[in-house]
Structures are given as C-alpha cells and as structure tokens.
Design a protein around this nucleic acid. Structure first.
Length: 725
DNA sequence: CGAAAGGCTCTTTTT
DNA sequence: GAGCCTTTCG
C-alpha cells in the first residue's frame, strides 16, 4: 500500500493504529503533519471511512490548507466532506448552525481583540468605573482567563478571590450583556459557547458525536482546557481521538494553553496508545545537537531521544554586534553575500525575533540595502484602522445589531455627530430596548408627536442621512460582494476622507488590498458571500497569508514560526531581557517557556543557524547594554563557530566592558582620544576616517567611514580602533 | 464639533 | 518612540 511505504516504523505504527485514542509525541521535524495526513488518507482509502465522519483541527488556517492539499495529492481527489480547520473556524461553523439552542442568532459577528477592548471600555463607562484605576487591558486578561476556564460571569463570582476579581466580574457581566445586545461573540466565546452547547444539549451533542468517528488534533501541546474539553465532547462516543504534540514546543501558556492536556490524556483515556516520533528529517546533526543542549536545561521535562540520519552540517554561528542597527546590517549583509554567491536563494532565509518591536530595525536595513523581505506581522493587516473601518460598514449590513461597528463608523467620515450625541443615541436605544442602528431606524420612522432623544436638529439630520445611506446599502445586499464593497466605499465618501490624511495614499492601498480579498467571495450567493468574507477576515492569522515560494526573506516572530521550516535561520536579539524576555526572569515556569521558544526557533532550521545579539539596544526610548542570552552558554564549544561564547567573550574587550558595567565602575582605560578627521584602523574593516566621536561614560561612540566597509558606528573600547598617523 | 497639540504609559508572545 | 488619551482653542 503506497500510503504506508514512505513511512518509518514509528510513523507507520501511528497511521495503522486506528482504533481508540492515540497520543503521538512528535519531536521537531519528525513528520507529524505527514503522519496526520497519511493517517486520514489511510482511513479513507484502506479502512473505507467516509471523510464526512472525520475532523482535523489545526493551529492556523495555513496548516489546514496545506493538510487539505497534501490529502488531495495522496488521494488524487478532493476531500470535500472532511471537516478541517482551526478551533475557532470549526466552532464558528457549528454555532451558525446550532447556536439557536443556546440563544446565539446565526447572523452573529465575531469581535476581535480591538473590538473586545472597545466593548470593555464601554462596559467600564456604563458601570461608572474609572479606566485609569481599572485598566481595560487587565480586565480583558481577567475575562479571557475566566473564559479559558469555562467560567460564566455567575461562576466567576464564586471563583473570584480578590477585590480586583470582584470588579472584573462586574465588568465581565456587563460586557457579556453588551456582546449579546450586539449579537456578537468574541474569540473565546466561539470556543466556550460551543462547549456549553454540547454540554447543555444532549441531542445536538449526540448528532456531532455520531458524525465524528475520527478526530485529529495537531499542536496539541498548545491547546487550552476549553479546546480539550471540546475535543473530548466531540470524540466522546467513538473515542477515536488522535492528538499530536510536543511538550518541548509548548509556547502558548500565556494564552492558557495547558500542558496538563498532554499529561492528562493518558488518564482521561487509559486505553490510549502512545507513539513516539524521534527521527528528525529536517535539520543537520549539529543543529539538532545544539537545540538539544538548549532544551535539556529545562527541569520540567521528559528527556527525549531525537536523532537524525542527515549530514553533520556546519556549526551554529554566534555573532555579537554593537547595536541593533549593526545586528540588522549584519543579517542583511550575510544574506546578500550568500545570495550573490549563489549559495542560497532569498526564500531560503528567515529572521526570527522575540518581540514585534524588533522587526522595525530589520525592516529598515532590508529597505536600505534593497533586499526583498516579507514581514509576517507588524501592524497586522486586518487590524489597520482603514481596513477595520470598511469592514465595520460591511459588518453592520450583515448584522444591524452590531453596536461596536455602528459606533465606529457613524462619524467616519466626519458627519458632525460627536461623542455626546452618540451617548444620547445609545441611551435612547437602550430605553427602547434595541441596538443603536435599529434605533436610528425608529428615529427615522417616528412621528412628530413621539418622544425623541435630546439632540440638536442638525445632529438629528446628520444621523438620519447616515441611516438613509446605510438603508440604501442594505437594499443592495443582493449585489455580489465586490460591487457592494465598491458601492459602500464610494457612497460613504470614505476614499475622500482617507485622501485628506497625510498617509492617505498608503491607507487607500490597504483598502484596495481588502477589495482584492473580497474578490475571492465574488461568486458566492450574496448574503453568504458577505458572511463568509467577514468570518474569513476575522479568523485569519498573519501566517495564513505567508507564501514561502515568493523570493523574499521572511521576518517573523518566534511564536509565528512554529510549524514552519527554513534552510537558514537567523535568531536576533539573543540577549538576556529579550530572549529570555525580562518578564520571565522571576518565574521559573515562564523561563522554561522562553527556553522552549528558543528551541522552536533553532529547530526551524534545516542547514544553518545564526544566533545574533547586540551589545546595546534601544528599548522604550533609551539605549542600554544587555548581557548575552543565558541560552547561549548551554551550547557547547564544538557546536559553535569560533569556539564557545564563553571563550570568545573571555578574550574580548567586550567581556571586560561587560564586567566593568556589571561592577558599576567603568574604569578609565588607555583609549586614544579620537576626533573627527582622525585616521584609524580596525582589525576587520580596515582603514577609515573618523566622522564623529561622542563620549559615552568613559568610553566613546565613534562613527567611522571605512574605505572598504562603509560607515560604521562603533564603541571605541570594543572596536579596538588604532590611530594611524 | 473637530483639529491640533501636548502628556501619558507601556511593549511579549495571538486565534 | 509611538500610540492613545486629554485638553485647548477655533
């Protein structure tokens, strides 16, 4: 059987184990996606299971798409009836069909993080709580945490301990009410409500349990309690639940991912079979060894025997630069050299970092040197103001109760409807027992004699003309999505509004890009097309749009890089305070997660790894030196180019500077005094002329124009500049 | 009501 | 350093 022939014995065992629960512990690069797809293909083709009875849950839409494509190839045909997608997408689909049973109307909209924050602020406002005293973000975290524990507001009340919990509980209650009024669900609601649906409606649960005789979950180490609960519900009857994960790659505990899911799996399913995938097909021996040394320092883990038949490869390069600008420059230069030397293509490279803020300096360097790059996140496309504005118009057409969207656009472009008037309208709507948009409708249709909100005639006129415009759009809902899109953008005056702004051109481009996305839904029947579009744009992640075949270097966070692989990987910011992040310093568990994050990064690489750090880095405005990442010390000498960091550092002036810094006394050294115009010599860059010299503590930042290497900014003590006369 | 200017506070990671 | 919020003035 050709489905089995390309598998190693462990993979084959996982594929052929079709009865009962199955836990697959899969190291990086061990072919876990392959195992899932082959297992599904095997079930369909050999066992004869109808794809309709199978579910596969992935972490991103991209992973789902790729899995579907691989299946398509394996089975030489489409697998239309297979349920495949992210937790959120699958739950949204279930709730559209079955939500009525728990009071969720099928036309609901999904609120993203920003919408959620808006609504929490409004909840605070309505409760008369001061947002300065109770930070909306902190409340949001509390609410997310409650939902991740399946706690309703009432249950949270019993669970809460502190005074803050009590406040958060009140906000949670009001927030939930506002969501309901808007016929909206937030991300966590999608999961929680589905679990409640199944818990409280045995007939519905049975239908789904009967349907899904085989359930697969990818990246199981990053599922939270609610997601696991949901899988247990759906697989509850047939108990053919196959989960695949790697505890060493668990990096989402802050999103309430819970490793106990893996640990409890064998308890919840005592009959479960466990298969270990330990052969790595991705990386060289040296990369795998370096990664193993990094992860081995974690106390809370089971040792694993990861191995590979791949070549030894080259040692990991550990590089230190002076500033983050030089760090970026190093990365770009290195890539440029390899590409122009024909050693590699642009899309062989990925540059990974701990925090999004680090991407800016990198971007600048790539732009300056004209090396094509693709930034995976940054300001996420669908979170841009102009994109969300247009989406808000469309959302309101799908769901007139959507208060967050209405309030967002009622005065965009400016129509002379200010904050005060909006509050009056909202209160009036609440009094009438309807959402804000239907209240506009009532206002438009009300007779002279009826009571009205206390608004000036000018404002009433503005509101009514806004309502009439939206009503026109509503009547055009039968148009295909692109025509509807164009109509809304044209009639609302949104383009003119954008163009009046400084960066209007660029923002308008983004609107056009959104329109391109809308084109994919053009041929769907009108209302469904709109609904599918809106759901799509809310549930996408940034990696979903990543196309590795484009000739560009990928800039990506370590978190987003999970599940991907690249021939050559740079990890920048290898410093204590960045990776590991400073927030993890006082919590051993978080520190272990930082280490796993580093492990994930290294194991993305097939051929070559660079671990790069900057001596000085600007953070929150001010620049300060950071010590090397503690993870670097765990990689032994023979796996690193130029010996271990310890040896290199011990010899270097950098070490002296560092220890001086740590002692808090920077001793006056015998540095030659430099001024603009002086000729100097550098061991690596050769000869050059000093452009400027700025005293820093007892050292100096010197900018030098080198004859061969261009202009560099260097710290004099560690650059080792010699004065040439 | 709206634009502009100044002040404040954070920045981890995201479906 | 940037985004967000508040204040101020037209």
């Amino acid at each position: 059987m050709d489905i089995l022939t390309e598998l190693n014995p462990a993979q084959r065992e996982a594929v052929e184990t079709i009865n009962g629960p199955l836990l697959i512990l899969a190291g990086p690069g061990s072919g876990k996606t392959k195992v899932i797809t082959h297992r599904i293909a095997y079930l369909i083709k050999v066992v004869g299971v109808n794809p309709y009875h199978m579910m596969a849950v992935t972490f991103t839409n991209k992973a789902a798409r790729e899995m579907a494509e691989r299946l398509h190839r394996l089975l030489s045909g489409v697998v239309a009836d297979l349920t495949i997608g992210t937790f959120h997408a699958i739950c949204a689909r279930i709730l559209r069909r079955e939500g009525k049973a728990i009071g969720v109307a099928p036309g609901f909209v999904i609120y993203d993080d920003e919408d959620q924050t808006n609504l929490i602020k409004r909840s605070l406002q309505e409760l008369g709580l001061d947002p300065k005293q109770y930070s909306p973000k902190a409340i949001q975290t509390a609410i997310d945490a409650a939902k991740a524990r399946l706690l309703t507001p009432a249950e949270y009340l019993k669970w809460g301990r502190s005074y803050f919990d009590e406040i958060a509980q009140r906000v949670y209650e009001r927030y939930q009410k506002l969501l309901e009024e808007s016929n909206a669900l937030d991300f966590d609601d999608l999961l929680m409500k589905t679990v409640h649906l199944f818990r409280d409606n045995p007939p519905v649960r049975s239908r789904y349990q009967n349907r899904y005789s085989y359930v697969h979950v990818d990246e199981f180490q990053d599922t939270n309690l609610v997601q696991y609960e949901l899988m247990k519900q759906i697989a509850g009857k047939h108990r053919n639940l196959c989960v695949v994960g790697d505890p060493d790659q668990s990096i989402y505990s802050w999103r309430y991912a819970d490793l106990r899911n893996i640990l409890n799996f064998e308890k919840d399913f005592p009959e479960a079979k466990v298969v270990l995938l330990e052969q790595n097909y991705r990386s060289t021996k040296l990369i795998l060894e370096a990664a193993s040394h990094v992860i081995s320092a974690n106390k809370q883990r089971k040792p694993k025997g990861l191995w590979t038949e791949n070549e030894a490869g080259v040692p990991t390069a550990v590089i230190e630069t002076y500033t983050e600008q030089e760090e970026a420059q190093f990365v770009v230069n290195e890539i440029e050299q390899m590409v122009s030397g024909g050693e590699a293509k642009l899309n062989d490279f990925a540059v990974m970092y701990r925090t999004n803020a680090q991407s800016r300096v990198l971007e600048e360097a790539f732009l300056r040197y004209g090396v094509p790059y693709k930034l995976v996140a940054g300001t996420r496309f669908y979170e841009r103001r102009e994109v969300k504005d247009v989406i808000a118009y469309l959302r309101l057409l799908q769901n007139p109760s959507d208060n967050v969207s209405l309030l967002r656009i009622i005065n965009i472009p400016q129509r002379g409807i200010g904050e005060r008037s909006i509050v009056e309208l909202s209160q009036w709507a609440r009094m009438k027992g309807v959402a804000a948009y239907p209240a506009l409708k009532m206002l438009a249709e009300s007779k002279e004699s009826e009571p009205k909100p206390p608004l000036s005639p000018r404002v009433v006129k503005a509101m009514l003309s806004f309502y009439e415009m939206m009503a026109d759009f509503t009547e055009s809902r039968e148009l295909n999505l692109v025509d509807l899109f164009d109509l809304v953008v044209a009639k609302s005056g949104y383009k003119e509004y954008l163009m009046r702004e400084m960066d209007g051109e660029e923002r308008w481009e983004n609107v056009l890009e959104l329109r391109t996305v809308a084109q994919e839904y053009r041929d769907m029947p009108a209302p469904e097309g709109l609904a599918a579009f809106l759901e799509g744009v809310t549930l996408v992640s940034d990696v979903d749009s990543l196309d590795e075949s484009v000739a560009a270097v990928i800039l990506i966070t370590l978190h987003q890089a999970k599940g991907l692989e690249f021939p050559i990987v740079f990890i920048v910011g290898m410093e204590d305070g960045i990776l590991p992040h400073i927030k993890s310093f006082d919590d051993p568990e978080q520190m272990e997660e930082e280490r796993r994050l580093c492990y994930v990064g290294i194991t993305r690489a097939k051929k070559r790894v660079y671990l790069v750090r900057a001596f000085r880095r600007s953070l929150m405005g001010s620049s300060r030196p950071n010590p090397p990442s503690r993870f670097l010390w765990d990689i032994p000498t023979h796996l690193i180019t130029g010996g271990s960091l310890r040896e290199v550092a011990a010899e270097s002036r950098l070490a002296a500077a560092l220890s001086a810094w740590n002692r808090g006394v920077v001793g006056k050294t015998d540095l030659p005094e430099l001024k603009a115009g002086d000729h100097v010599k550098h061991a690596q860059f050769g000869e050059g002329v000093v452009v400027s010299a700025k005293p820093v503590k007892d050292d100096a930042e010197v900018t030098v124009a080198f004859e061969g290497a261009g202009v560099k900014r260097l710290l004099q003590s560690f650059a080792g500049l010699e004065k040439v006369t």
